[in-house]
Amino acid sequence: MSKFQFPKAIFSRPVYTVLERRVGSHHLMVADAEGGGALLDLAKSDSGLMADAHVIYIPKHTGDTYSKPLAAFAPGQFYIGSSYEASVARLRRTLLGAHMGLQVYLAGTEGLMGQVQSEAAQAGISPESIQSEHRGSVARRMQCVHCKGITEDVTVDPFVCGHCGLNLYVRDHYSRRLAAFQGVCVNAEDPGNVPKAKELYT
């Protein structure tokens, strides 16, 4: 089961919906891993949509589970990225050339959707024209408030910052600009004692 019901949280934390077709002159779809399933559901709901769509899809561990059926819908442009970092130049170029009436559909992990949203905001795309549907891993993209390093795919709390090595706890406070949640030193007041790491949402 790849759909996850996030518990109610503080206001800065993003919330997600189910993608639905919207009227637009162009359709940009960006997804990673199980997010491919959300694009498939969208395509099935309106097969005519895909002909006008530019799909940027990063399969990660899912192999061709989603990429094959997505290709079968013959999107107007279909790109399979080997990673987000590898795809981001193409994404920026696409956003730069975006016209009025562009609709953006995001699906997959919070880290992917957050980063694309941040890119879109910088390109001046209005937030109202962006939809996001969470699928797959509940891992978080975390900024270390101390060293500012970003650690991707954090699934446990506390975790070790991939840059400075401090033990950080996982906050719900979220920055859209950074596309990251905030990590703060968990044992500053008790240096010898790092709580045992637990899976997020358990």
Partner: peptide
């Protein structure tokens, strides 16, 4: 609170961590 983290946020977002007040 961190400016580097909160810069660009709206009034409700940057106050999100404050308990009860909302």
């Amino acid at each position: 609170w961190s400016l580097d983290f909160d810069i660009g946020m709206n009034f409700f977002e940057w106050h999100a961590p404050v308990p009860k007040a909302n």
